[in-house]
């Protein structure tokens, strides 16, 4: 097996003087789902933001499809085919659902009709509500708008920062189903999750981070079965 499709290799860095990440490695293969789990303050979101270029690395590199993108800005990474869904404030609340999707495709100059149709196929409720301001939707629907917005750039990798935070278990299951569907279409998924158990169930690969470093790395299934992981991170 050669290079993973996207890899944040041996990343070290943080926001201020103190490092949060210590030689942390996160990777995802084409069309697969990778999930980052770990206790609070383990640097999960930070690791994801590092891969997306939202904090400066002091060591390590980020490579997409073999190309070193360590020094690119987040905006340039979007242009390279990375989509990012932040945990909060991830939609334009005063704009309609459709306009949210259009803004997602802002950088594209070609026809976006097909992509929008695909997003509507994936999230039928959005089509129904396409002329409503996104701020008026329910929590789960907002997350769909947020994911849909990121999909509008036709990304090769979709990065999700705790997509199920604050939504009900039923909505969470539905959202995970959609995420699997996205992965099946060939888009790699990298996601940070609080709900470790459910997330690992759908993950091809799982990363357990502790204090900004890799503690366990394996397939989702193997991690689920590892007694130590179960005891320490999945609550038995």
């Amino acid at each position: 097996m050669g290079q993973p499709f996207l890899i944040g290799d041996q990343m070290t860095g943080g926001y201020g003087a103190a490092d949060i990440l210590h030689g942390c490695t996160i990777a995802v293969e084409k069309g697969e789902i990778a999930v980052i789990v770990g206790p609070n303050g383990a640097g999960k979101s930070t690791a994801m933001k590092a891969v997306f270029g939202m904090l400066k690395l002091r060591g390590g590199s980020v490579r997409l499809d073999g190309e070193d993108i360590t020094t690119l800005s987040p905006q340039d990474r979007v242009a390279k085919g990375m989509g990012f869904v932040p945990q909060t404030s991830n939609i334009f609340t005063s704009m309609t659902v459709q306009e949210n999707l259009e803004m997602g495709a802002f950088l594209r100059r070609d026809n976006i009709k097909d992509t929008m149709a695909q997003v509507y196929d994936l999230f039928p409720i959005l089509k129904e509500k396409r002329n409503q301001p996104a701020g008026e939707l329910s929590g789960g629907q907002r997350q769909q708008v947020a994911v849909g917005r990121a999909l509008m750039t036709k990304p090769k990798v979709l990065m999700l920062d705790e997509p199920t935070a604050g939504v009900s278990p039923i909505v969470m299951d539905e959202l995970f189903d959609r995420i699997i569907e996205v992965a099946r279409s060939g888009i790699s998924i990298l996601m940070v999750e609080q709900n470790a158990r459910q997330a690992l169930e759908i993950a091809d690969k799982g990363y357990v981070l502790v204090q900004g470093a890799n503690r366990f790395t394996d397939t989702g299934r193997a991690l689920m079965e590892d007694p130590e992981v179960r005891r320490s991170f999945l609550g038995g």
Partner: peptide, 12 residues
Amino acid sequence: SDNEDLALLSGI
């Protein structure tokens, strides 16, 4: 105007 960070993320 609505969400500056997300606008930047969207390449505006």
